[in-house]
Design a binder for these strands. Sequence first.
DNA 1: GATAAAAATCGACATCGTGTAGATTTTGAG
DNA 2: CTCAAAATCTACACGATGTCGATTTTTATC
Lengths: 204, 204
Amino acid sequence: MSGHRPTPSRRTTERKGDVRERTILDTCEALLAQKGYDAMTVGDIAQGAGITRGALYFYFGSKQEVVTALVARTVEHLWERSRATAQTNEPRQAIAAAMRRTVELWNEHGLVMRTAIDLSLTVPEIGELWSRTADLFITAITAVLERAGIQAGTEPEQASAMARSLCWMIERTFYHASQESRESLQKASLTCEHIWLISAGLAA
Amino acid sequence: MSGHRPTPSRRTTERKGDVRERTILDTCEALLAQKGYDAMTVGDIAQGAGITRGALYFYFGSKQEVVTALVARTVEHLWERSRATAQTNEPRQAIAAAMRRTVELWNEHGLVMRTAIDLSLTVPEIGELWSRTADLFITAITAVLERAGIQAGTEPEQASAMARSLCWMIERTFYHASQESRESLQKASLTCEHIWLISAGLAA
DNA sequence: GATAAAAATCGACATCGTGTAGATTTTGAG
DNA sequence: CTCAAAATCTACACGATGTCGATTTTTATC
């Protein structure tokens, strides 16, 4: 855990370790792209970051902790972006905007997002992070559905349940498409948008 | 790989090894439920099957191969069931039947199916098996959509693309729900069925 | 700019899981 | 009964992990 800085307080100069920590995460992300999670070893990360295995363990307790920190960093990004998004009231526009934003997210952070999804089962901490992220999306989708006239509630055919399934549809479709190419991601987004629109009762 | 029996020919007695092999897979499945893939060690499987690690390596070359064989065995089951399903022509009935069948599959084989999905990235062989299984579903969904009047084709808003996204929606929704309980699986299936119906233009 | 505490790094070690190899026992077909 | 194939075991070598104590580098403070 990067359970450092109990109070980030005011520190004039940046600790050398803070830079290292960032370097480690950057290296980890690069290696994740090159060789994937399993093949990537703690020694690889340390070497890439220009330190010894022993030194790396000063920062993180395990490979899993490194990746968890990387996911946390990325997910933080998503949350910020999510907050910063202007809320539209017109459902059709809201849906279009959401899909556009999601495509951007997957284009920028696809690798780490896929990793997070893959490790959600194995690494509880990552599962927690991703689950919270998904909830954000589900809440947003639910809001749009309700504004479009879908009955609120958690029963199978009500907004909340539908939003959950739609969220998983988008996650999974993008997960696969983002492994292919930008084009397929773009096409996939159109398909998802279409199904979302229909589900909201806003069919063309 | 269990690439044995080039011709199952007539063998009066069953090889002792065939029984062992099955025992190993059963043990593997049990351990997968108990401790999960990562925690499960080759030694655990061997012990559970009543043999030594060394002996297990006579049957399978690695932990991954054991799990791959287990997935193959399960997936075989799915394919059989899939073939055996009576084809209904009325879309509404076809959808209902498909969802009923899918619930059964996840209730019976949820654990292995989740494992297969999780390992699809890491173990190419499993990825291949699961991808072929998904294609089966996608084809089936596509057929229903087309029979319901959705335009055929692979463009974003045509049957094939929609079927793909719907398939991922079902996979992911069931993946999560099957970890919860039978009830949530049942509810999830109703939600998915609803969205599928709407997407097919058969809204209630 | 000297200094001492805190931060950072290193190298060595113990442990564990993997996969291989050769020796040995068991099985079962003729 | 016999002997080749099948099945099993033990021992080993390797690679990755995580820990520890010793050592060096930073950094805040005087």
